[in-house]
């Protein structure tokens, strides 16, 4: 494996020369992709901010100052949506962040049948999220659903899962964690395999037990990965939609209305594109902070 040579200094061949023909051909190759980025990434990014200050009605938009923002701020669903989204993200962070890490550490200690663990933990990731949501909705059926059956079998109290305001959010977090932890686990597993074995040897010679080796070798050695995946997870879970749409429709009593779900409602059920864009702009700015942090981190780390 050769290191990539620096590409700045070459001028001997036309591969790097800024001839007219070379430039034209290059632009021609770039143009279609750039057009797509412009239409579906850059332009919407600007448009969302502009529309959030406008009253939009069937294609005609007029400036309306902060009216959209005032309107959504006074909507009780607005508060519920942000509260639910934060709650969802918080719980998902504990589960979707801790569980895959522990799982990866355990898999990494297994000396046999690793392919089994890897394959099995990743299988739910390849099931379409819609299918996962439909299946879990069935598992959550009060009485005859799988989870109530298991709880009753273990003589534990059953739960109303997604049908009670208290447990709805947690139930949704369980679905997304089950469906997505495979990818995170595999990424952690790679990180764990990159830890130099000598570090464990040295720690053991110094008399460190398993817990202290975990605490002082495993965790610090994977800290960067943990941070990166935490940021990505926050960004992903703040935009949860499919599970809400398929399983609860925002209910019961707005207990699972999330920000993205509310955006969808505003735009496609209330026909209030201005309000939807005001909400989107808020979410955009909020998440851009995390994305910026993420990009900074990955770039500075190489």
């Amino acid at each position: 494996m050769r290191a990539a040579p620096e590409q700045r200094g070459y001028t001997s061949t036309s591969a790097g020369r800024n001839t007219l023909g070379n430039n034209l051909l290059a632009y021609l190759l770039i143009a279609p992709a750039v057009l797509c980025f412009a239409l579906f990434s850059w332009y919407p990014g600007i448009k969302v901010i502009i529309l959030s200050f406008q009253h939009y009605n069937f294609g005609t938009a007029t400036f309306d100052g902060l009216a959209n923002y005032r309107a959504i701020f006074s909507d009780p669903e607005f508060v519920a949506a942000w509260r639910n989204t934060f709650e969802f993200t918080g719980i998902a962070l504990v589960l979707g962040f801790g569980v895959p890490f522990i799982t990866a550490v355990v898999i990494n200690e297994m000396r046999h049948a690793r392919w089994f663990f890897r394959t099995v933990v990743y299988l739910p990731v390849v099931i379409p999220p819609v299918v996962t949501a439909l299946l879990w909705k069935w598992f959550y059926t009060p009485g005859s659903g799988l989870f109530d059956l298991v709880l009753r079998g273990a003589h534990l109290p059953t739960s109303s899962w997604i049908y009670s305001t208290n447990t709805a959010i947690v139930s949704l977090v369980l679905v997304t964690t089950w469906g997505n932890m495979g990818l995170t686990t595999l990424i952690y597993l790679t990180g764990l395999q990159n830890i130099p074995g000598q570090l464990y040897e040295a720690a053991e010679l110094d008399g460190a037990g398993i817990w202290r080796r975990f605490r002082h070798v495993t965790v610090p050695q994977t800290r960067y990965l943990l941070l990166i995946l935490m940021l990505l997870q926050i960004i992903a879970t703040m935009q949860v939609f499919t599970e809400v749409y398929v399983m609860t429709g925002g209910g019961p009593q707005n207990a699972t209305v999330t920000v993205l779900y509310l955006i969808y409602q505003y735009a496609f059920n209330y026909n209030n594109y201005g309000g939807a864009c005001a909400l989107s702009a808020m979410l955009l700015v909020f998440l851009a902070i995390f994305s910026a942090f993420y990009l900074r981190l990955t770039r500075s780390h190489g």
Binding site: F37, L39, F40, S41, W42, Y43, P44, G45, K47, V48, L51, I235, A236, M238, Q239, F241, L260, I263, Y264, A267, Y273, A276, C277, S280, L283, L284, L287, A288, S291, A292, L295
Partner: peptide, 18 residues
């Protein structure tokens, strides 16, 4: 690269309008 900063779904409404 900058468009990496835009979260996946937050722009779904303006994209739909486009």
């Amino acid at each position: 690269l900058a468009s990496l900063m835009l979260p996946l779904y937050a722009l779904v409404v303006p994209e739909y309008l486009v």
